[in-house]
């Protein structure tokens, strides 16, 4: 049965239009807000990742430089190089049989020169790498959903 009732008054057309415009604007603002938050986080994340890459390259470069300088030091202190420098500087071999030139002295606690370390003594472990980051933190939402849909279970693969 069709209702015959009618409102006692109707909204003016401009009010209707205003209401629609405000609704659309509100929707637009919310969408823009979400987008801005998303973009801001994405931008920061991208920036951080780029910086990580740059620092990684820098670290690799420093690592190479350290290895190179260690070897340079090794070259400068190589036996023949030191012998040659000593001779050029006028040093001569010690006559170990001449007690005026060479004497033994007992020094309590002296164990000789060499590499000494305070590092803890432990078995040297084998080299292997396992990520400490759980897979939940390395998957995007899409990847997580995809795996849930295709396999029905959560993936616990260790990333590498």
């Amino acid at each position: 049965m069709k209702s015959k009732n009618q409102s006692a008054y109707r909204l003016a057309p401009w009010r209707k239009q205003m209401k629609r415009i405000l609704t659309i604007l509100m929707g637009t603002f919310i969408a823009a807000g979400v987008t801005m938050v998303y973009l801001s986080i994405s931008e920061r994340m991208t920036d951080v990742k780029l910086r990580i890459q740059l620092l990684q390259e820098e670290r690799a470069d420093y690592s190479r430089q350290i290895a190179d300088l260690t070897t340079d030091e090794g070259i400068l202190t190589a036996y023949k190089a030191m012998q040659q420098r000593a001779e050029q500087a006028g040093f001569t071999d010690i006559d170990f049989t001449d007690e005026d030139e060479f004497a033994y002295v007992i020094v309590d606690g002296y164990t000789g020169t060499g590499i000494n370390t305070e590092a803890p003594v432990q078995d040297a472990p084998r080299i292997e790498y396992v990520s400490l980051v759980k897979p939940e933190y390395t998957q995007s939402l899409q990847e997580w959903l995809y795996k849930r849909i295709t396999t029905g279970i959560e993936s616990y693969e260790v990333s590498n």
């Binding site: 994405s42 994340m45 991208t46 990742k49 980051v133 933190y137 390395t138 590498n160």
Partner: peptide, 9 residues
């Protein structure tokens, strides 16, 4: 992807 956290080992 900025949404995917990752680390270089």
């Amino acid at each position: 992807d900025p949404n995917v956290p990752d680390r270089i080992p």
